[in-house]
Amino acid sequence: MKRGPGLKHLAPVTSAPAARLGMSRLLVGGFTLAYLGLQRKTLRRVVRTHTEHFAPVGPVKILRRPMRPQTADALNDATLVSAALFTLGVGHRLTGPLHSALLTWTTSYRNSWSMIYHTDNTLVAHTVVLAASPAADALSLSALRRGTKPADHPRYAWALQLMNAVPAVAYLLAGIAKLAQPRGWTWARGDAMRRQVAIDGIRKEVYGSRVAPAAYALYPHRRLWTAAAIGTLVLELGAPVALVLNRRLGRLWALSMFGMHWGVEIVMGIHFPYQLSGISFAAWFDLERVLRIVRRR
C-alpha cells in the first residue's frame, strides 16, 4: 500500500481510486438534489413568514434584514441547479465551489428563520471538501469526455480521509458538550439522556404530534439509558481514535454511528436524513465496488 509522501505520520492515508471519490460526489450531490428538491415548498413558505423570526446565522450574518422572498427562492433554485451540475461533474472546478457556496448560503438562510438545526452541518462540510478536491476525475461527464482513467493516488484518499474526519469532529464536539454540562461526567449515568428524550416527546405532544412509542417503552428502564449513555460517549469521544488508528476500526465506528442515528429516529423521532441515508459515513467504504458489481451484471 502506498502512502502520501510527507503526510504518513498524520493518518493511515493510502492511495485510493478516483472512482471512490467520484462515487462520494455522486452520492452527496444526488442526496442534496433530492433533499433540497423535497424541501423547496417548505423553504418558499419559511422565507415568507414574519420578518421578526429572522435571526441570521453563519454567512447570512452579513444581512441586517431578510432578502426579498423572490431572491431567496432564486438562490434556492440556483442551489438545486448547481447540485445537479455538481452531481454530474460538469465543470467541477467552477461548479464545485459555486455549489458549495450556494449550499452553505441556502442552508444557513433556512436556519436563520428558526432554531438552528444541526442536521445539515456534515452535508455542508462534505460538500466543501468534495468541491475543493478532484472529485470529478472519475464518474463525471467531464471524465467521460476526456476518456481517460486516472490511476489510484493519495490525492483521492486524502479527500476521503477528510470526509471521514468531518463527522468524527462533529461527534467529538457533541461528546465534549455533554461533558461540559453542569453535572459533567454524570451524563454517563443516562439520566440526562433519558430526560432529554422525555422532554422532546412532551414538546412534540403539546405541539400536536406524538411521543414515539419506543420512548414510553424504554423510559422506565434506567440501566438501558446508562448503557446507551456510556456507549454514546465512547463513540463520540473515541471518534478521532477510530479515524487515525485503522480503517477497519473506522468502519466499525461508522456503522455504530449509523445505528445510533437510527436509534435516535426510533426513540425520539428526530430525523437526520443525511446520517440515516448512510451517505454521511459512505466515504469509509470501498464504494467503487458497487460499480464493479453493476458492470458484472
Binding site: T107, N121, K178, A192, R195, I199
Partner: peptide
C-alpha cells in the same frame, strides 16, 4: 453563541431537570 454550519452542539450542554 451557536452557529451554522459550525456548531458546538449546545443542546447537549443543557441541564435536564425532572
Amino acid at each position: 453563541v451557536d452557529g451554522f454550519p459550525l456548531s458546538y452542539y449546545p443542546m447537549f450542554r443543557q441541564l435536564r431537570k425532572q
